[in-house]
Design a binder for these strands. Structure first.
Length: 809
RNA sequence: GGGUCGGUAGUCUAGUUGGCUAUGACGUCGCCCUUACACGGCGAAGGCCGGCGGUUCAAAUCCGCCUCGACCCACCA
């Protein structure tokens, strides 16, 4: 043990991480009788690099996991990677410079899987490097056979209870990704556009229609006006001629046409927006398709066919203008729905998709939300807000190559859906075939070529994780899980969908608690994003500081709050790491040979330190219990830095340096307090800064306590015997006196090195204490203040009423 | 338009079951390398607690209105 060296996190952190893995420090024990604490760890998506926001929220859940583990829970804390779905798909297309739709399906899937295998180890190590205490042997990948099997089983189960259905209908479509997308995948984006007044003709008379999407003209099937709009009363029921394309469409009255908007007359196209769908259904309008699946104009668009939507828009506006059919065009910016994955503007296309029926479950979903303990409480409203606003069933089919396959075929003859056998899962219907003929006798099948949406699988994470455990009894005990930790941005996706699947498959809410963390923002409090170039890479921060420092930063904000990332806050964390090392090596070097035995008599000032330790343990434990790790950190920090380092260590030094001046008992008392205070501090900091605390624990305490790791040691418990009001008062008085003397010295410009003796032995002490008498009055209501033989002086002072006195031994 | 959270020293933040002098960190200024630590110690300066009004003996804290910001949802011809 070399106590002279500096603490080097770059050497130390990987060392302990490797040891933890080797020793199985965080292994889940399926045979253990300890109370369970099961965590539905979020599987990070491999489509994006690890960023500081990950460190932020994963650290926060790790604080809780480590705290519970030390408290004696059997912590089930798996780790998965989400390498399924469109995001991964898009990443590989970009990385390998390919377009899946132009490749052989099987080859493309092979390419994605091999790319994932290449990237995975480095990706996962990012999480290990920040000291996350998952059991990495409980590992799943959302695209591996284990997860495919469970996901396909989920589909089959839902099919059997008639919760999934396939339907052709107008639905949201991303022309760039060329797939259907769900409501939850939409995002608002402010886009520049123009609002155009276009001439339609009714009985040779001109009426103006306002639109931002003139390229939809070929798909125009009606013109709507408000029934109360006097301007258009006489044209309702007549036919309007669409400019350029010349088709005749009815002029209809409908409440949903807003007289205030545009010209008050609006065209209905199949489909420009959701109102179009409503009108299409309500008025039994024909279906006209102007836009194809890849975002180009269809044959219907005549000479514009084959051009991209935006080009067609420009061309049509130009042609309208040339023909004198464009009466006005003003630039506007408006919010449009875009696909959150690629930023492409959504289209509504009539396609055949699979859905999970959820619209009839609103009440059930809302009451499920009430059964969850939300941390912080107010996050529940985001869930409820979403549940209340549901407009579509959950679309789960995607027109992509890569993903979990639907385990089904269609009978070519009778159209029957053929389910795969459960024991054959996972299946790929494009490769495998049904094991027996269709009920109609036919052996001719069509595979479902669509793949399941990634959320259809990741909504099963409790099951994906629990089924990694072999022991059946344990599997039952693990569900519902104790905790779902995640960030607030995916309450509507992941959390909500997991509740849906939980209710459908088990009739139970999947977890008891949901801890929702905030976001790491850039130093100015803005959202970090690649496009803004303000993304911070954790590896670089760890390189400059340490994982512990970064975690310390993450512990600085309350659960659910966003926190601006400021490098200096990480620096503060690093200083705490250093301070912890320095204080520890000082204490440990003075504890050599000490075995932790409790002395017969504990000196008052030592009792004071132990009392404060006890208070800190009580507070810290209560805060961790409530998931308020930031308060726990603040309490421990204050005890460590102010009470322990700045005061207690200074007070105790004389007994350590000049032990000869003291009895053995007095020295033993100091060592007892030092041992317990430092051990307590290390343990309370261990969930936050696992590496430095392990380092110092291993230096000395491990062998005394007989534990392999501080992270498997017991969380300190409050000890009523250490409550000592008298010691608290006299200790606080001692600190107050020290402080008063320091102020006196500064004001009188005495050197800080001036011994207390020089100040105290004279009448000067009175001058020191009098100005601060009121402040220390309370604390001075003790007869004797003993804080070590700093000098030989013993002084008593009378403040007039004879009540207050101080005696410095 | 609906909802949620928040506005506390230059910056970030604690405190909100109402009650002594409003917490801490970073930054700033002064003194100090004292045998754990200069990534340190000691001291100091810095706040009409977003605004207005109300309840109360007493409001950062409770109520109302306003304002600014972040986020979620809806709308988006």
């Amino acid at each position: 043990m070399d106590l002279s060296k500096k603490y080097d996190s770059k050497e130390s952190e990987p060392k302990w991480q490797a040891l933890w893995e080797k020793e199985g420090t965080y292994s889940f024990d399926a045979k253990s009788e300890k109370p369970l604490f099961s965590i539905d760890t979020p599987p990070p998506t491999m489509s994006g690099a690890m960023h500081i926001g990950h460190v932020f929220s994963y650290s926060q859940m790790d604080f809780i996991a480590r705290f519970r583990r030390m408290q004696g829970h059997n912590v089930f804390y798996p780790f998965g990677t989400d390498d399924n779905g469109l995001p991964t798909d898009k990443m590989v297309e970009k990385l390998k410079k390919v377009k899946s739709s132009r490749m052989q399906r099987t080859e493309y899937v092979k390419l994605v899987l091999s790319t994932l295998d290449e990237l995975r180890p480095k990706f996962v190590s990012g999480w290990k490097n920040i000291g996350i205490s998952c059991d990495f042997n409980l590992y799943y990948s959302t695209i591996n056979p284990h997860c495919q099997r469970i996901s396909q089983k989920s589909f089959i189960d839902l099919y059997k209870i008639e919760r999934v259905y396939r339907k052709e209908m107008p639905f949201m479509w991303c022309p760039s990704c060329e797939t259907a997308v769900a409501q939850v995948e939409l995002e608002d984006k402010e886009i520049e556009s123009s609002f155009n007044d276009i001439v339609f003709k009714v009985d040779g008379k001109e009426i103006l229609i306002a639109t931002t999407r003139p390229e939809m003209l070929p798909a125009c099937v009606a013109v709507f006006v408000n029934p109360d709009d006097k301007r258009y009363k006489d044209i309702v029921g007549k036919e309007a001629e669409v400019p350029i394309f010349k088709q005749k469409v009815p002029v209809l009255a409908d409440e949903r046409a807003d007289p205030e908007k545009g010209t008050g007359a609006v065209m209905c196209c199949t489909f420009g927006d959701q109102t179009d769908i409503e009108w299409f259904k309500a008025h039994n309008l024909p279906l006209k398709v102007a836009i194809t699946k890849n975002g180009k104009m269809s044959e219907l668009a005549g000479k514009y066919a084959g051009t991209r939507v935006k080009e067609a828009r420009k061309e049509i506006i130009k042609d309208l203008e040339a023909a004198g059919l464009l009466k006005a065009s003003k630039k506007i910016t408006h919010a449009v729905n875009v696909h959150e994955r690629c930023g492409t503007e959504m289209e509504i296309l009539n396609t055949k998709q699979w859905f999970i029926k959820i619209l009839d479950m609103k009440n059930e979903l809302l009451s499920a939300g009430k059964k969850i303990r939300w941390l912080p409480e107010h996050m529940r409203s985001r869930y409820e807000n979403w549940a209340n606003g549901l407009q579509w069933d959950w679309s789960i089919s995607r027109q992509r190559y890569f993903g979990v396959a639907f385990p089904i075929w269609y009978c070519k003859k009778c159209g029957e859906v053929i389910l795969a056998n459960e024991k054959d899962l996972p299946v790929d219907p494009t490769i495998d075939s049904p094991k027996k003929p269709c009920k109609c006798g036919s052996n001719d099948f069509l595979p479902e070529r669509d793949v399941l949406d990634t959320w259809a699988t990741s909504s099963l994470t409790p099951r994906l994780a629990i089924e990694l455990v072999d022991d059946e009894t344990m599997r039952k005990k693990l569900y519902p899980m104790t905790l779902r930790p995640q960030a607030h941005d995916i309450i509507t996706f992941w959390l909500f969908n997991t509740v849906v699947k939980g209710l459908l498959h088990t009739k139970e809410v999947p977890w008891k608690n949901a801890m929702i963390s905030g976001w790491a923002l850039d130093p100015k409090g803005k959202k970090m994003s690649k496009s803004k170039g303000n993304v911070v890479e954790p590896a670089k921060v760890i390189e400059r500081f340490s994982a512990d420092a970064l975690r310390f930063w993450a512990a600085g904000s309350r659960l659910g709050d966003d926190l601006p990332y400021k490098e200096k806050d990480v620096h503060t964390g690093q200083k705490t790491v250093t301070k912890l090392w320095n204080a520890s090596k000082f204490v440990i070097s003075n504890l050599e040979g000490y075995d932790g035995t409790k002395p017969k008599k504990i000196e008052e000032i030592d009792a004071w330190a132990l009392h404060k330790l006890n208070e800190t343990i009580k507070d810290s434990t209560q805060y961790f219990d409530k998931y308020e790790y930031s308060h726990a950190r603040a309490k421990t920090e204050k005890f460590f830095w102010v009470v322990f380092c700045d005061n207690y260590l200074e007070i105790v030094k004389d007994r350590l340096y000049n032990a000869g001046n003291y009895s053995d008992e007095e020295v033993a008392s100091a060592k007892y307090a030092l041992y317990n205070c430092l051990l307590g501090i290390l343990k309370m900091f261990a969930p936050l800064m696992p590496h430095i605390t392990e380092e110092t624990y291993q230096l000395f305490f491990a062998k005394e306590e007989g534990k392999k790791s501080i992270h498997n040691s017991e969380w300190p418990v409050e000890n009523k015997e250490r409550e000592n009001k008298k010691a608290l008062e006299s200790g606080d008085a001692a600190v107050a006196v020290i402080s008063a003397i320091r102020i006196y010295k500064t004001k009188n410009q005495l050197s800080p090195n001036t011994p207390l003796k020089e100040v105290i032995v004279s009448e000067k002490l009175k001058a020191v204490l009098e100005p601060v008498a009121s402040a220390v009055q309370c604390a001075m209501k003790v007869e004797t203040v003993s804080f070590g033989k700093i000098n030989d002086a013993t002084e008593e002072f009378d403040f007039g009423d004879g009540k207050y006195g101080i005696k410095v031994q």
